[in-house]
């Protein structure tokens, strides 16, 4: 019989605990994808680089190390592979067209909360805890007027660390940058609304049901081309 009180946390337990476990940290949930050896190497290098950065004040090597390790940890194809895709060429230069924006970043306008599972003001932490619930249901689309001031944007997403998106929504919901490019004439017109949803959702329902509904809506809104930012 095992005795939980005597359970010693292994290094495997430790590295996996950052992935929705006791140390949940969405910037580092990739540690679960690494072998024990690779994770151990990651930490050793991380600490060594921090030591260098103590001396010259340049932490870019630390940022690079984490970023590169994250990319390695997610390498490899996912569930969805296709041999070909439909393709529609652009019918005119963008300076003559209406561009739309859709992201899976989980942004919405203050006062227009999608209220997942009927919960009022769900916290980011609760969204993380309920990630498995989100993954079972269809995503809810938030409609965000393109002229919304970024101070009125909110973000909640149980799949990634939203702090950068809170500090500046343009990191993955670039409405300010699009407005600038439209003002400069690079884009003819912006659609009246942008769209965002929580990408951590049932991928099959998104593919077979929600997605086609959205396409019909974009057609009705006469959106000529769409910028997509998956998170």
């Amino acid at each position: 019989m095992s005795d939980d009180n005597q359970h010693q946390e292994t290094f495997e337990d430790f590295k996996n605990s950052f992935n929705y476990g006791s140390r949940s940290d969405l910037n580092f949930k990739f540690l679960k994808n690494l072998s024990g050896e690779d994770a151990s190497h990651f930490f050793q290098e991380l600490l060594w680089k921090i030591g260098d950065s103590f001396n010259d004040g340049d932490f870019t090597r630390v940022v690079d190390h984490v970023n590169e390790t994250q990319a390695k940890a997610y390498a490899g194809v996912g569930r969805f592979t296709y041999d070909d895709s439909p393709f529609t060429p652009l019918r005119a230069p963008l300076s003559q067209l209406r561009l739309g924006l859709m992201t899976s970043s989980g942004h919405f306008v203050a006062g227009d909360d999608p209220k997942p599972f009927g919960v009022e003001n769900m916290s980011q932490q609760e969204a993380e805890t309920r990630i498995d619930d989100f993954l079972k249901v269809e995503p809810q689309l938030s409609v965000i007027p393109m002229d919304t001031s970024i101070e009125k944007l909110r973000v909640r997403h149980g799949g990634y660390d939203v702090r950068a998106s809170m500090a500046d929504p343009n990191v993955n919901f670039p409405i300010s940058r699009l407005a600038e490019l439209q003002a400069e004439g690079r884009i003819g017109e912006l659609a009246s609304d942008a769209y965002s949803f929580v990408g951590a959702a049932s991928q099959l329902r998104l593919l077979n049901h929600t997605g086609p509904e959205w396409v019909r809506m974009f057609q009705e809104k006469k959106i000529d081309a769409l910028l997509l930012v998956p998170v």
Binding site: A71, V77, L227, P230
Partner: peptide
């Protein structure tokens, strides 16, 4: 989207390059 006649472009991070 494309089958519905709307051209699209996706921006993604290098961690998801293989998947995309």
């Amino acid at each position: 989207m494309e089958a519905g006649g709307i051209p699209t472009v996706v921006i993604g991070v290098h961690a998801f390059r293989d998947r995309l």
